[in-house]
Simulated scan of single mutants.
Amino acid sequence: MLLHWLPLTLLCALALASADAATKAWLQEFSARELAVVRLGLTGLLLSPLLWDLPPLTGLPAAFWWWLAALVPLELLAMLFYMKSIRDHPLSLTLPYLAFTPVFVMGIAWVLLGEAVTLQGAGGVFLVVAGAWLLNGERAQAQDWRSWGEPFRAVVEQPGSRMMLATAAIFALTSTMGKGAMQYMAPEQFGPFYFGVLGLTVTLVFAVPRPGMFRKLARRPWAVLTVAALMGIMAYTHFLAIAQVEVAYMIAVKRVSLLFGILYGALLFRETGLIRRLPAGALMVAGVALILL
């Protein structure tokens, strides 16, 4: 009997935030491609023992492989954006924009899977957008109404925020498409299989042409293994949870990771502005909670 999707999703969120913080703390000198090898390649290797009872792949329909073929390049692109964003920019200014993922998911899942949200869910979308506005609220002045649009322009002007917003949109696509592929494979098998495919692809594309990358990763074995293990927990719980509920609702709760990320940023990296940014992040989480309800 699978656990209920809510505790699975909260565990998924905590594992993701912890992997982000560990990446920033221990692997700061790694490039985005090297981090992709750690977070996808090594994670796929760690999850591979779970594939021992995988059914014959020849029995899978062509639709499954079409889903997979579309997913892999999108996932790699999102990971490169994601790694560069959290490596080079403050977590508190980048991670909150991941809250936009369920906003994008609502439209994408409706088109691809026929999943719809309620009017109350639309209210949650408004709260998410309001939280994003408050995140950069110091750039707006009450006495000048024209400045109220500054936070939205900041999304375009700040590279870290812009990359993370693009990542959120891509993750909305991959989360929805992943559930589409799971129509043909059980979630406890699809997660390890999918990350195995991702891991093999990213290793062949990024690591094999650069043998020195393996030596660099081997110099930080415990840090690399810890990040990969946390990503493995995230991946496994993600697919177990998303199989049990609408994509928008699961992704909304998963974005609680942004609050964990803001706290990590303040406690571990001494990032300033916690008091100002934490309420904005809380408002974004309130929005995704409204979508959940």
Rank of each mutant, 00 (worst) to 15 (best):
Q143R: 03
T201N: 02
T226K: 05
E150L: 05
R210S: 09
P187W: 04
P187G: 04
V197S: 09
M164V: 11
M231G: 11
V155Q: 05
G199E: 07
M182R: 13
A218G: 07
P209A: 08
V205W: 13
Q244I: 06
T237G: 10
R162F: 15
M234I: 02
A142T: 00
G137A: 02
R153E: 01
G212R: 12
T237F: 14
V155E: 04
W145I: 04
E157M: 03
L204H: 02
M234F: 12
V197F: 05
V156S: 07
A228R: 12
L204C: 11
Q158Y: 13
S175C: 09
L198G: 06
F171N: 12
H238L: 09
A142L: 08
A241H: 08
Q143A: 03
E157G: 09
V245N: 10
P221F: 12
A228M: 13
V156R: 12
M182D: 06
M185F: 12
K216R: 15
F206T: 03
M185K: 05
F152I: 05
A218S: 11
L217K: 07
Q189K: 04
I242L: 00
E138K: 12
Y194G: 06
T203D: 06
G196I: 05
Q141H: 05
N136D: 01
F190K: 05
W148I: 06
V202W: 08
F239H: 14
T201D: 01
